[in-house]
């Protein structure tokens, strides 16, 4: 089943990389929305059906933690899994976002396989597809 994805990051490059990782993992995606910060993400969520959010934490205007809080407090949105993709791996921060309801946490620099495995777990799919399932160096 195709799923709609929202990627939230102030870096266009990271949004591009994540889209590519998902594409070569063989996931069947519907619409892939992009937002450069939490505020822009809220606007996307207001007008579109999203099945999964991948969000950075440190962003101008509205950070990823505030976005996570808003999503989880909203009855219409709280069912959407949110995965944090960020540079910080400090235990305190990881615990905080998991307590706030994040479904997963990926630290940059990441290996594409990490994103693939996490999405498989969250979306409940055994294997993403037949296109390509194992990553090698340079597979971005």
């Amino acid at each position: 089943m195709a799923f709609n994805l929202l990627i939230v990051d102030d870096s266009v490059s990271i949004r591009q990389i994540i889209k590519r990782v998902i594409s070569i993992s063989g996931f069947i995606t519907g619409d892939i929305y992009e937002a450069e910060n939490g505020l822009a993400a809220i606007k996307v969520l207001a007008g579109n059906q999203v099945d999964l959010i991948l969000s950075d934490i440190h962003m101008p205007e509205m950070d990823g933690i505030t976005l996570l809080e808003k999503v989880k407090k909203n009855k219409a949105l709280c069912h959407i899994p949110v995965v944090m993709v960020t540079t910080e791996a400090r235990e305190q921060l990881v615990n905080k976002v998991m307590e706030l309801g994040a479904s997963g946490y990926i630290t940059k620099p990441f290996h594409p396989e990490e994103i693939k495995q996490l999405l498989q777990r969250i979306l409940g799919v055994e294997d993403a597809g037949d296109n390509k399932t194992e990553f090698e160096e340079g597979d971005f």
Binding site: D10, S11, M59, T86, T87, A89, E91
Partner: peptide
Amino acid sequence: EMVNMVAGGLVNLCDPDGSIVLGI
């Protein structure tokens, strides 16, 4: 993004308890 990753990696190493705030 490279600088962001480096700074994040640095605070993970130097400040695991989390008192340092990362800029943009």
